[in-house]
Each structure stands twice: as C-alpha cells, then as structure tokens.
Design a protein around this nucleic acid. Structure first.
Lengths: 227, 227
DNA sequence: GCCGTCTTTGACGCAACCCTGACGCCGGGC
DNA sequence: GCCCGGCGTCAGGGTTGCGTCAAAGACGGC
C-alpha cells in the first residue's frame, strides 16, 4: 500500500485530502507543521509527500531541504502563491511538482500517481531482493524461486508465507504474526494452516523435507528461516 | 550535456524554447509533429522531452504512449487546454509534468531541471529496445513484433499489455498492476479483461497457445513474460 | 448510414488451490 | 509407563480462478 504524508496547516484541506486518498487505498499520515512533518517523514518513510508551503512554524522550502538531505521521496508542493519565483525556488530546492491552490482533486491525484509511478523502480529498492541458500534462491522482486536451475511453482499462499519468512531471515517469526500477515488481521490461532503450508514449502524447497534445515520450527513459538 | 527533445508545431514557441535552452547549454532537437518526434526520440535518446499536446498529425497522448512503450525518459507536457480531464489523461498516460500555456519560461525551465534531476541516477541504465525469444522478436521503439519473418498485427490494447509485460521481462507482474497500467488507475479487479487479452496474445505469439512458454500464468497472482 | 474492427461482457467447464478433519509421531510431565 | 499437547502428514470436498468461446456494444472509416 502506498503511504502518503500530507503536510498542511489548514484542517479542511487536510480533511479533503485524507478522505480522497484513503478512499483510493492510500495509507495517509498528516502533519500540520514543518517540525512534525520532518519527524513523521523520518519515522514512517512515506512513498510520497504532499506539502503546503504556508506552514506556521517554518518556511516550506526549508521543509523540502530538510527532506532532501536524506531522502529522494517525491515531494508534491501545494501553494496559494502563483508567482513564478516561488515555484522556481521550491522546484530547485528539490520539489518534484508544484500545484497552485485552488486545485482540482482529480489533477492532484493524477500528479500524485505520476510522482509515485516514476519513483517506483528505484524507490523502495534498499532491500535485498536476492536471497540465496545452498539449496535454492529466492528473488523477491521477480517473485521467483529457483532450485537446481529450475523455477519452483508456488501458490499465492505459499509465496506469501515464504516472503514473510525470508524478509525476516534469521529471526524468529511468531505463529500469530505469520497468520496475521498471510491470512489477515483477524486470524491468529489457526496454527493448523501454518502446519499444512510449512509442510508444502518444505516439500518444495528442502533437500530432506522431514529434516528441514532452512525452515525451522520453534515449538510453541513460531518459525524461523535460516539461509 | 543534457539533450532535450522539443515537440511543438508552433514555430514561435519552438524558437523561444530552443533559444532559451541553448543559452543554458542544453543540446536541443526539435520536431513539429508526432511521427517525427517518435523517430527522433528513438534515434537520439534525449534526456528529457517537452511535448505540446496539440500536434497536427496525432494526438499528443498517443505520443506519450509511444514513448512510454520503450523508455522512461521524463516527459513534460505543454498544453493550451486547462481542463482537468486533459491533464489527468496525459499524466496517467505516462507524462511527468503538465504545464498550461501561456507559461513562464522560468517556471518551465525549473520544472525541466526538476524532471532531469530526478531521472539522473537511473539514467545510466540503458533501456532495452529489442527483446528476442526463440519464437518472436519485440521492437519496443518501433512498436513491431516479428514472427517467422513477418510482422504480427496487434490491436492497441494487445500492444499495451505486451509492452508492460516485456518491460518487466522475467518478473511477475500482478493482475492489479497490469490492469492499472493498461486500462487506467481506476481498474484493478476486472481480471476477465486480462484473461481475454492474454489469450489473444498467446494465440498470436505462442507456438502452442494452450501450452504457453513465454506468457506464463501465476495463478492468483499475475502474469510473467519469459524470453 | 453502413460495415469492419476492437473492446467489453457473460457463460461454462475444468483444473488448481484452500480449508478441514483425522491420524500418527514425538517429547515432557506426572 | 501412561497421558497429553504440539507438530507433521495425508486425503477429500467446496470454492475460487483461469481459459475459452460467443455475442453484444463502441468506435472509426468509407
């Protein structure tokens, strides 16, 4: 889910944005001043930032610089100022786009999509996408598993389970966490699901499924993926 | 030196842009219609494109789609149309920015800098324009598929779908992503479209359409193009 | 206005997947 | 030595998702 950080001190604008964004399945954080915004950005790592230049505590351009010091997250500036100089200053400070108020919600959302789209390939790419073990290789980006030079077919649930385990490689993942991440928040006690699907993963990926080396059971607690 | 491709049929606008850009040490190519523009883009690989939507020979949005089929070069749209729909359409087709005429030269240049700046780091990665398999060849720039020495006729939708898959060669593309890229952001659940069009692509390109080798279904998740 | 092409929509059969329950195994506690 | 909880395994049935075909609707060219 795409995470948006909205920074604006006018409550009605924030409300309108939040409603529209949430309706389109964005995850939304909101800040009403620059200091909070910078904190939130650092804590939540949004995929895109919508920033009103007229903030109570600091100049909007300073917020842009503050963000650009450590992240390339797309910044979409909102402003009541139509002057060319303002736009140039904000854009050269590192903003990606500049929309003047009053703005059309459709247009703003389209510009938001454009900003997110173009950041996609490199955007989240800090993570390791290739995970190798002695027996098989997991490519998280391509959603592919190779073993003995051949692709292994996984069902959606199998893949989802594998993904959670691999992303937490070396760490213990509790049964509850696995159930909630794969089957949804309302699950948590159906440990039989886990038994069945862990067995399938092991059958497809372990050299000796009855003596697993990579998908380790921690009795009473959860499972652990070891590379 | 940064290379700019200017596409506009109004000589005075082209002239103004060329003068201003050259004065700032950009290298400038110019085209006055869509067909020439697509040719020039393929031949010269500009770092950024400035595109007027009102062209004599084809719809500006078609030019955007034509470019997006094989390159992620930033596209800055110029247009006299202020309507929100126009903007949304252009942006969703793959434009990076949309400036309405009359525009301030300073602002345009600032937006150009922003577009170039954000494309920089990925700029090194050369786009692959020719993708070959054992059964057919896809030329993303020329929008052509050859099979057994003959061109294959594809409908616009078939093309678009093929483009998205080929650009993500080897990677799994989710059904939602395919639907949104080909049919627009408001689609996401109409998986029957995918079923119909995947079948058509396979019928036209696979040796044995009922046992596809290159257009692979990952049940419940999406599709994958393998070369 | 007519015709051909492309897109959208619906229906149907079939295969694959997900859930479920039963059973056996193993280890620890009493 | 027996009991019991947790885990692994297996097989069956309901359901979902995919491929296919056909026909209706939308669009553009002549």
């Amino acid at each position: 889910m795409t995470r948006v950080l909205v920074i604006d001190d006018e409550p009605q604008i924030v409300r309108a944005l939040v409603i529209n964004l949430k309706a389109r399945e964005y995850e939304v954080d909101a800040a009403h001043d620059g200091a909070t915004a910078l904190q939130l950005a650092a804590a939540r790592h949004p995929d895109v930032v919508v920033l009103d230049l007229g903030l109570p505590d600091m100049d909007g351009v300073e917020v842009i610089r503050g963000l650009r010091g450590w992240t390339r997250v797309p910044i979409l500036v909102l402003s009541a100022r139509h002057s060319s100089d303002e736009k140039v200053e904000a854009l050269d400070a590192g903003a990606d786009d500049y929309v003047t108020k009053p703005f059309g919600m459709d247009e703003l959302l389209a510009r938001l999509r454009a900003a997110v789209r173009r950041a996609e390939p490199t955007g989240g790419g800090e993570d390791e996408v290739l995970v190798e073990t002695d027996g098989f290789t997991v490519d998280l980006a391509a959603k592919k598993v190779r073993r003995h030079g051949k692709d292994v077919r996984l069902t959606p649930t199998e893949w989802h389970l594998l993904e959670v385990l691999v992303r937490n490689a070396g760490r213990l993942v509790s049964q509850k966490q696995l159930l909630q991440e794969v089957w949804g928040p309302s699950y948590g006690t159906e440990t039989n699901y886990l038994r069945v699907y862990m067995a399938q993963l092991r059958r497809k990926l372990e050299a000796d499924p009855s003596h697993p080396e990579h998908f380790v059971t921690e009795p009473g607690m959860g499972y652990r993926f070891e590379r």
